[in-house]
Amino acid sequence: MRDITIGQYLSGNSFMHRMDARVKVLLTVVFVVSVFLCKNFWSLLTMVLFVAVFILLSKVPVMTVLKSIKPLAFILLFTAILNIFYVSGGNVLFEWKFIKITDKGLYTAVFMAIRILCLVTFSSLLTYTTTPTALTDAIEKLLSPLKIFKIQVHSLAMMMTLALRFIPTLIEEIDRIMNAQKARGADLETGGFIKRAKALIPILIPLFVSSFRRAYDLAFAMECRCYTGEGRTRMKQMKCGPRDAVASVLAAILIAAVILLNHFFEKLI
């Protein structure tokens, strides 16, 4: 339970830490789009290089970055295996009864795995170098044009901030309730799927009850401090600087490179 790393910020003062959060969010969006634009290994290689450059710029230890991949090992393996078996075409490398492995399947599997890895590492870089508050502020600013459509952007951002804020609290709470029920002999570890699902009831109900209580308390506390939603000012104003210009140029080059490489080399996917 304790090793959930969603939104885990590592304090630091690197190039990427000091970038404007808005630019970082946009950069991530651009990156994700370009990862999906990749059609062959050459363009994918530029993506990998781009990730590597930003890992260096963020000064986040490589081991920490790799750790963020660990929970995804299963998904990676799963998609890779599916791709190996289901993609047809190309030269047959191995055939046994209904199983048929082709070189194209193998390439696709590797390609997909690298693609997922790129996505995960880059987005975890964003959360490693940006505090959750800065992140939600940035999202709020970026989404503010949606106000024209009467969407309450500020409320959405506040919801995100609160959700992130309560993750550790809830983890602690779950730990506590689990221990209390275990002390009363609740068996959470053995039995089949249905038995285990049923064993979760004594944990989920107290969790919901206390979440509602917390929600009411927090809402009261916010109202007592005159929270009305709109019109709040910020202690830290977001400013774009030369760093952000550099990053934007890098992103532009990235897209250009991907499109060119897609165009000049053989299409794989």
């Binding site: 506590r176 309730i177 221990n179 209390a180 029920q181 002390a183 004594p202 109900i205 107290p206 009850v209």
Partner: peptide, 13 residues
């Protein structure tokens, strides 16, 4: 060994 935690009312379900 019966263990009753702090604020045990939060375990009622």
């Amino acid at each position: 060994v019966g263990l009753c935690f702090q604020y045990p009312e939060y375990q009622l379900f």
